[in-house]
Design a protein around this nucleic acid. Sequence first.
DNA 1: GAACTAACGCAAGCGACTTCGCGTTAAGGT
DNA 2: ACCTTAACGCGAAGTCGCTTGCGTTAGTTC
Lengths: 188, 188
Amino acid sequence: MQPARRPGGRSAKVRAAVHQAVIDLLREEDWDKLGIAQVAERSGVHQATIYRRWGTLSALVDDAVTEQLSQGSPMPDTGSLRGDLEEYAVRLAGDVAGPLGPLYVRAAQVGTRDKDYVTYMMERGMQLEGVLERARQRGENAPDLLEVLDVIVAPVYYHAIFFNRPVGAEHAVMLADRLLRLRGSPGE
Amino acid sequence: MQPARRPGGRSAKVRAAVHQAVIDLLREEDWDKLGIAQVAERSGVHQATIYRRWGTLSALVDDAVTEQLSQGSPMPDTGSLRGDLEEYAVRLAGDVAGPLGPLYVRAAQVGTRDKDYVTYMMERGMQLEGVLERARQRGENAPDLLEVLDVIVAPVYYHAIFFNRPVGAEHAVMLADRLLRLRGSPGE
DNA sequence: GAACTAACGCAAGCGACTTCGCGTTAAGGT
DNA sequence: ACCTTAACGCGAAGTCGCTTGCGTTAGTTC
């Protein structure tokens, strides 16, 4: 058997430094000024190392973004479906609008093919599904996941990507309300 | 005064050939295999000419895509708001799903800053607003433009970008129906 | 704590992308 | 039909991103 890998130590330090540099650059500069050269200089890690470990810029950004996003906040649990959806919508809008906002957008543009990113999206979807399931067990008429994606998530990203201007908190609350209205009128 | 520019003739031919090559390559290859070298070879126009006229690949793609999209089909006019919205939703979904689909997505990713693309979006928005205005003059309770963007347009693009799988015609019709339901219940 | 080896730093080198100067072509005016 | 000149073709030179081979550093094991 192999003499065992070395997950900790120097490699971990290099990885952390590079990730941090990517995140920083992703926040500050415009999306195009980001290159492996810049990451190397800021992180103090040599270009060759980055090329060897990640190969392409896409893969590197994907890796860094996925890790950063994985530490995301947990799903809301306010006790009511309306509260949870509003909380989720406002938080999502805030995330996209905030300093890490470009990460979400960038991740969507760069990492569509990457497996890790898809995995992240799936996990996130599952967590959201959990919120809906809790509501159903409380007896509430909860929408399914696809409706949430269409009515709440899609507009938030759409505004950020196409208009370069994220939605405000009021608009986010309105999106949640709209979703509830769709379920409310014909249902219970 | 200047001896007058020369909008027609050779320049126009070159421009058309290059545009055609870009569109073709955009359809066939994956988005990354597209380079100025490929465009030059396929169009028969020298690289230096392309660099001189467009400068960067982004600008070139933007120019070609904008022109291509400007020749887009006119807005539907079926006589009823429901018909128009369904027609528009299905057509949009089809466009995004069709061979020119990557164009729309690509345009969104590349041209966020470009003036021409913003102009195109504004024009398109105005045309859509015209459809809604016609409905209002017929006495129908039409939604405003922002609602259409949120409920119909955003999900279509969202699915294409994030899931790499465009929405089908049924889903598109459902989106239009959802928008009408939102207006229908509390309104008239 | 000494040997082993995976991972990194370094610098040379290859290749693709981009630019530049000059000669040529053809549109627009007279 | 002739002249003017904007725009293109061509080849060379310059720049930048990326890869590769080798020496060095630092975890890991015994």
